[in-house]
Simulated assay, not measured.
Amino acid sequence: MRIRATVAAVTGALALSALAVPAAQADGSASYRADVAKVREAAGHTGAGKSVYTGKTGPTGVPYDLDVTFSGVKVNGGKAIPVGTTKQVTIPVTYTLKHGADVDITADDFLTGPYLYKGAFDTPDNMLFGDYPATCTATSATAASCKGDIDIYPEDLINADAGAWKAGALAIAYNGQPQNGNADLSKVGYADQGGFTSPNVQRYSRLTVNASPEPVKKGKTVTVTGLLSRANWDTAKYAGYTAQSVQLQFRKKNSTTYTTLKTVKSDSKGNLKTTTKATVDGYFRYSFAGTSTTPAVKASGDYVDVK
């Protein structure tokens, strides 16, 4: 969920307290997210994956540094993450967890999970967590293979979030302390580690095409229009993607291969328009290669009968 500092004076630790859960998630996920937010804020992590105190018991209200490290974090199989305007997007994450011999990762109150963050690790602009903790399978006495999800809701994003993110993973050992009550956080262990590679989070794209007239006489002009748009997370609507290069492509009626005819620029509203000569029956489409913030997209071919 969004943990966004809306004013420059708000520190990363304070921003973490703003962790919220949509009403649609009024279930066990609310508990996990709230637990993570409370412990992260109390730990005041330094960005090196350590809490402000190391030892088995921290100062009053401060978690101790849990002997857990993470490696091999892989987000969504390395594929970019397009997010639209309404639908939740759940992406899988795998990672390796290593721990000290005295850390019981099988305890009911041991939690671990992945997350994404935008900006600096110490003071992230935004963070995205899973609704539930990850599950881990021991591979040795001090290591485990973990799988978890990150649940992304469009309302937790703004347009400036599109592009590069980093991944992290955390672990919390409550050691018998109440998770949803007045836990003595000095007896709670906490580990947090960031800086892992993540694919880009992108604004979902759409592309349309219309070729006319239909039918058309051979040698006459065909006008091909279209619209390139993408998710606008600020307004929860789709808006034209302006000044982008888009290829006009053509496929003959009995062929399976498209050939690029020309490149067209989208206008100030994302509209596309160009003309070409009619030669044979076939399909016209627009094709957009994508950018770091917006995925590639191809329109469905529009058939034109040439007389």
Rank of each mutant, 00 (worst) to 15 (best):
I3A: 12
A5T: 00
S17Q: 13
V21D: 09
P22I: 14
A26Y: 08
S29W: 01
D35Q: 13
A37L: 05
A37R: 06
K38Q: 13
E41M: 13
A42S: 15
T46W: 03
G47D: 14
G47E: 14
T57S: 12
T57M: 06
P59G: 15
D67L: 03
D67Q: 10
V68K: 06
F70S: 03
S71G: 13
G72M: 02
V75F: 09
K79D: 15
V83C: 04
Q88C: 01
T94Y: 10
T96K: 12
L97G: 04
H99C: 10
H99Q: 09
V103W: 13
I105G: 12
D108Q: 06
L111Q: 08
T112I: 02
P114Y: 12
Y115Q: 07
L116P: 00
F121T: 08
D122I: 08
T123H: 10
D125H: 11
M127L: 12
L128M: 11
F129S: 04
G130Y: 07
D131Y: 09
D131I: 01
Y132M: 02
A134N: 04
A134Q: 03
T135P: 08
S140P: 09
A143D: 12
S145N: 14
K147G: 11
G148L: 04
D149C: 02
E155I: 07
L157V: 05
A160H: 04
Y174Q: 06
Y174D: 07
N180Y: 05
G181N: 02
N182P: 13
L185I: 09
S186P: 09
K187D: 07
Q193K: 13
Q193G: 05
G194D: 05
V201N: 05
Q202D: 10
R203W: 09
V209M: 03
K217C: 04
K217Y: 07
T223S: 14
V224P: 01
T225R: 03
L227A: 06
A243C: 00
V246S: 07
V246W: 04
Q249M: 03
F250I: 12
K253W: 00
S255I: 01
T260R: 10
L261A: 06
L261T: 02
S266E: 03
K269Y: 03
K273A: 14
K273L: 04
T275V: 14
K277S: 15
D281A: 13
R285K: 11
F288W: 11
T291C: 05
T293A: 15
K298P: 06
G301N: 03
G301R: 00
D302R: 01
V306S: 06
